[in-house]
Design a protein around this nucleic acid. Structure first.
Lengths: 192, 192
DNA sequence: GCGACTCTAAGACACCTGTCATAGCGGGCG
DNA sequence: CGCCCGCTATGACAGGTGTCTTAGAGTCGC
């Protein structure tokens, strides 16, 4: 076996924390629960994360952010499916796999009481927005309106996720994506 | 003095809880903090709310929901300002008064770990959606597309609120409302 | 005035939280 | 082999949480 234990345990904690945060929120995520659920010792938490829970949360949020960012960036090459569809399918999977209990890790960080986590959430949201803007421009949306449309896509996706969790159905997500698709199509027809 | 103490103290707790939930989330809202901040005795909590924290939270969420619902319904009469502007101005006030720390009580309930609170959030969201749908239809949006547009308005407003908090600026709210306005206008031009 | 009842005051209870210290296992390197 | 060091295991600590009890103050109607 490779000396993968270290990286492995650490990575497992980050991924597990991301999921738990997306389900319960930052404050309600307990280190004991996480350690138990991931089968790692609680005592080791401060070995891997000397900064304690705050550091672990920040890394989890960045990790979750990168996962979504990759979705957005990768969608640029597969021209058959639009960014909207890729995003919607990704979130649909998260919702269905968790029985509509898990949402967005970054959104949870944004509503944390800790300023530090809100700041990280801000940075991730900004990354998403930039990538989305670029993608939209590349698919024919005028540069002038792309930022506003991209912001709306980010916002309404997060909102739809919220409604989907409360409703325990993907309905809201589908409805919102349908409207959003029209918005992007209309934007593409605008004069450059 | 009128015997307003009872109603007063109770009402103060509900309103205070709504604000604290919108700021810190359901789980992070502490009954001790609330009692101290509102100048009411902690011991009396279970006199007014025999169901404990859960009952208080549910009432706070319904109270916050009704406040927004009234905004939507009332906007029907004042024809000069569209629902979107009324909603945006309301949220802008909440954000600015709290230094971008307070969001939506109902959204906080929707991300709670307690199923009971998620259910209440669902009901409130549904109320908003119905009222908004009706308003949109009355202002010329075809009945066929109104539900989808209304859902998108609710979702993107919630999402914009999230982004505004993380960004500590009303920018996202304004951007989203601008796009949303175009969406509604376009919907009005659709064949009935 | 007096009884009844609403509300307050204070505190105790069990539980859970993040944090950290200390002792011990275990395997890779010299 | 023997040492060192990354990692684990265990448990303690202080502080915070929702909850509930018990005793007392205050006030209203009769």
């Amino acid at each position: 076996m490779t000396p993968a234990t270290t990286r492995d345990t650490r990575q497992r904690m980050v991924a597990g924390a991301a999921r738990m945060i997306a389900t319960s929120g930052v404050e309600a995520m307990s280190l004991r629960d996480l350690a138990e659920r991931e089968g790692v010792p609680l005592g080791s938490t401060y070995h891997y994360f000397p900064g304690g829970k705050k550091q672990l949360v920040d890394e989890a949020v960045r990790y979750a952010g990168q996962t979504v960012l990759r979705l957005i960036v990768d969608s640029r090459t597969q021209s058959t499916r639009s960014v909207l569809r890729v995003l919607a399918d990704g979130w649909r999977g998260v919702l269905e796999r968790s029985d509509y209990r898990t949402g967005c890790t970054v959104a949870a960080a944004a509503t944390s009481t800790e300023d530090q986590h809100q700041e990280v959430a801000r940075e991730v949201f900004e990354e998403w927005h930039r990538a989305l803007s670029t993608t939209l421009v590349e698919t024919g949306v005028p540069e002038r309106v792309a930022p506003g449309v991209a912001r709306t896509v980010v916002a309404s996706t997060e909102g739809a996720l919220l409604l989907a969790r409360a409703t325990r159905s993907v309905g809201p997500l589908d409805e919102v994506v349908a409207v959003l698709t029209d918005v992007v199509e209309a934007a593409r027809r605008l004069p450059r």
